[in-house]
Computed example of a mutant assay.
Amino acid sequence: MTAVERRQRRAVPAPLLVLTAIASVQVGSAVARTLFDDLGAAGVTLLRLAVAALVLGVAFRPKVRTWSAGAWRAAALLGLAMAGMNLLFYLALRTVPLGVGVTVEFLGPLLLTLAQTRRVAHLLWALLAGGGVALLGIGGGVTAPPAGLLLAFAAGLCWAAYILASAHLGTLVPGTGGLAAALAVAALIVLPFGAPGAAEVLTRPQLLIGAAAVALLSSVISYGLEINALRRMPTRVFGILMSLEPAAAAIAGLVVLHQRLGLREVTALLLVSVASLGATLGSR
């Protein structure tokens, strides 16, 4: 048995890394929502990305001087996807419950799965997911305004780009150094939008504790686990596990934010999750 094989046998299973990342990022999102009144959604986004970039940069000290032009482009693309994904999603969370927001956002990875397979049967999964999201926009007691749902969907498109860009960067840059650079790029992109709100920590330093917790839960831990898991599993398997995201978000929203979803919202969550699971399983 080679040294590489021995390391692989001792390594934590890749699916467990993904499940841990799911729990971490959703708890982090719930904590982030509690900071919006003080820092604003864009301010929380900036602090999350900046703190995460600083932590990973100090911890791993990526050797950026040795990177190829292709590695830099991959890191920049990942940073762009992360900036859009995080900023748009946090803006959506101002008016949309966490479970509902993640349900709509999850259409991005689902569309990615469908685009990678192009099977006729997947049209049924797409219709099932579309029906689930449509449930969120009908009825008299709608808790999620259309603007918030559109922001969550746009964040989902960035999420799909993040999956592809993260997998690509992981093949070019070893370890987690590439993630640190991508987070720095994302922070620079969000800086013009989040600087006014983030400046509040200068007069109220205690807010930095919550922002640091969000950075650790939603970026450092979750992204680090995901990028390492994507090195050891195909994106199809990754997509199967990510089908649990809406349910994890609903639980985090209930426990941390006391957001109770109605029957319509829960049904929509289940329909989108089942559609994602079915489409991903059928992409073998």
Score class of each variant (00 low, 15 high):
Glu226Arg: 03
Pro62Phe: 08
Gly253Thr: 09
Leu164Phe: 10
Leu207Arg: 02
Glu226Pro: 03
Thr103Glu: 03
Ala154His: 05
Ala32Tyr: 04
Arg284Lys: 09
Ile209Ser: 06
Glu105Phe: 02
Leu87Arg: 01
Leu88Met: 13
Arg33Ser: 15
Val214Arg: 04
Ala167Pro: 06
Val201Arg: 04
Gly131Ala: 02
Gly197Trp: 05
Thr20Asn: 00
Trp159Leu: 09
Ala23Gln: 10
Leu241Phe: 14
Leu107Trp: 03
Gly141Gln: 14
Arg119Val: 00
Leu88Tyr: 11
Ala147His: 07
Gly137Ala: 10
Pro13Asn: 04
Gly224Ile: 06
Pro145Val: 01
Gly175Glu: 08
Val214Ser: 07
Glu5Trp: 01
Leu78Glu: 07
Trp72Met: 11
Ala115Lys: 00
Trp125His: 06
Val4Ile: 15
Arg94Thr: 13
Ala247Ser: 14
Val256Ala: 01
Val237Asp: 13
Ser68Arg: 13
Glu200Arg: 14
Gln206Phe: 13
Thr176Asn: 03
Val100Gln: 02
Pro109His: 07
Ser276Met: 15
Val31Ser: 07
Gly197Asp: 05
Leu269Asn: 10
Asp38Ile: 11
Gly141Glu: 13
Ala199Val: 00
Gly156Val: 05
Trp67Cys: 06
Pro109Phe: 04
Ala23Lys: 07
Ala50Arg: 02
Phe60Lys: 04
Phe193Gln: 14
Thr171Arg: 15
Val96Phe: 01
Arg10Gln: 14
Gly130Cys: 12
Ala180Gln: 13
Val142Pro: 00
Ala247Pro: 04
Ala14Met: 06
Ser276Ile: 08
Val120Tyr: 02
Thr20Trp: 00
Val256Lys: 01
Ser243Ile: 01
Val104His: 02
Gly170Ala: 11
Ala59Gly: 11
Ala249Thr: 06
Arg73Asp: 00
Gly177Met: 12
Gly43His: 05
Val237Tyr: 11
Thr103Ile: 03
Leu151Pro: 03
Leu270Trp: 14
Leu80Tyr: 06
Val256Glu: 03
Ser276Asn: 14
Leu230Pro: 11
Val64Ile: 15
Ala81Tyr: 07
Leu114Val: 15
Thr203Asn: 14
Leu80Thr: 15
Trp125Arg: 01
Ala199Trp: 08
